[in-house]
Design a protein around this nucleic acid. Structure first.
Lengths: 251, 251
DNA sequence: CGCCTACTTGACTTACTTCAAAAACAGTGG
DNA sequence: CCACTGTTTTTGAAGTAAGTCAAGTAGGCG
């Protein structure tokens, strides 16, 4: 556990993220800044919330990526969503006692924990902050819906392209894209457990996408070379992300 | 539009549904009862909220079933979720201006509409009511997550069995099951657009499930004959529905 | 009765999975 | 620095499940 050092960053990324869709008044921002976080670093693929847990803290991604996943009766793992800095990957634990899924770090990740008790107190004092977090959970839901559609209705190449489009677009909104690159520390196996395809197919499909010259994935980094073309391949329409201030990437 | 007649029903089903997971105080219930609904009946497969709309009302399913769906670039339709009486199928429109999916009646359905304005006012007077609706949206999200897993990680027969398990279990919680039957006015084509399978496969898979003697689907009615066995086939664990008061069906 | 829609069935084709093995790569210790 | 281990990625070949196509049947309704 690390208290103190680098803690301002946690408040900043949360405020940045909430401001993406909600106008926050100065006193609401002050309220957020007064929250006490407990920050921890996790190794790649380290699990820090398990299916069945009943957490008393909510997690906030400070840096790196966090994944949510289901474990099936068969032992199979299904990734449900990926979270970037500023996201609250288990805000639902505020109201739903038992976790129906787990959380893990995707690459190296830094996560801040906020006691539910404190969040509830802040909600009471600043209802608008509660509404912003509520909205945030609704955006999650809209990303889940798109994942249902992606994994059920789109052919494999489009499915993979769509995932890359979404992650790139969101990374961009979180200011994590520099010269058309963003971190994406995901293995082929995990890509398969996300998109519902066998690892061999993941590899071949990814090879095709690379071949198309629209993107590349190297050294845990996603590189977008032809945005419009990749977007077309993935049937990607960013409306469901409900980002107001975002302009589409050039290229 | 029907004002008045049968309107008490709308309040009742909403209260019943929220009480499933939240303890409501008498004054909160009174607040809900004071909401003015506008009730409308819809024909099977009638769409009443479209992708791209910016609704100023939230829908409440009073009777029948309501579906949420995506329309893809290819013209394909993907069903995302089904809602039973008491559900608020577009509560996210309270905070997310533009609909990223549509709503349609599955069979004949009766839907009540509540102006956002009124809901917000009620939220302000009774914050606990807001929290109950928030929780409701989080339960939706958990159903979405399970749908991702179902359609991505489970083989077709399990996938279909799981859907039936979920709908039956939820119908049971909503007191819509009588002698192991509940209404399910869904066509094979729609089942395919839900589970991501071709209609021929839907038919053959359904035939296998019938063959197994665990369930039947006839005259828009789902009949569960061997619950435990169907649950096993579908790898169904109801934890994700977070229903506190529910005991498992006998059989 | 005839029309339309929903369901059913069969034959064929293709996508994807599975299995297996090799190559590339990262980390460890000599 | 280089063998040694384990992991991830790549590739190939074979098998199979699911999609497509097409035709036929059954049920509901004017």
């Amino acid at each position: 556990m690390i208290f103190g050092g680098g803690m301002e960053k946690a408040h900043d990324v949360l405020i940045r993220n909430l401001c993406e869709h909600t106008a926050l008044a100065p006193e609401e921002i002050a309220e957020i800044r007064s929250l006490t976080f407990t920050q921890r670093d996790f190794a790649p693929n380290e699990n820090f919330v398990h299916q069945g847990d009943e957490p008393e803290h909510s997690a906030l991604v400070v840096s790196g990526m966090v994944a949510r996943y289901h474990l099936l009766g068969s032992g199979r793992r299904q990734y449900l969503a990926f979270h970037l800095s500023g996201d609250l990957p288990d805000s639902q634990s505020l109201f739903i006692d038992q976790m129906d899924h787990g959380l893990s770090a995707l690459g190296q990740a830094s996560v801040a924990f906020i006691p539910h008790r404190e969040l509830f107190a802040a909600f009471r004092r600043r209802p608008n902050f509660a509404l912003a977090v509520w909205r945030e959970t609704l955006l999650d839901a809209s990303i889940f819906r798109e994942a249902i559609t992606n994994n059920s209705a789109r052919p494999m190449p489009a499915r993979m392209a769509h995932l890359f489009c979404e992650l790139f677009y969101r990374a961009r909104a979180a200011q994590l894209v520099r010269s058309n690159r963003c971190r994406l520390p995901i293995s082929l196996a995990q890509l398969g457990e996300t998109l519902g395809m066998a690892i061999a197919t993941v590899n071949r499909t990814l090879a095709d996408l690379r071949q198309s010259g629209t993107m590349d994935l190297r050294d845990s980094e996603l590189i977008v070379l032809k945005w419009r073309e990749l977007q077309r391949l993935g049937d990607f329409t960013p409306a469901y992300l409900h980002l107001k201030r975002q302009s589409p990437p050039r290229l």
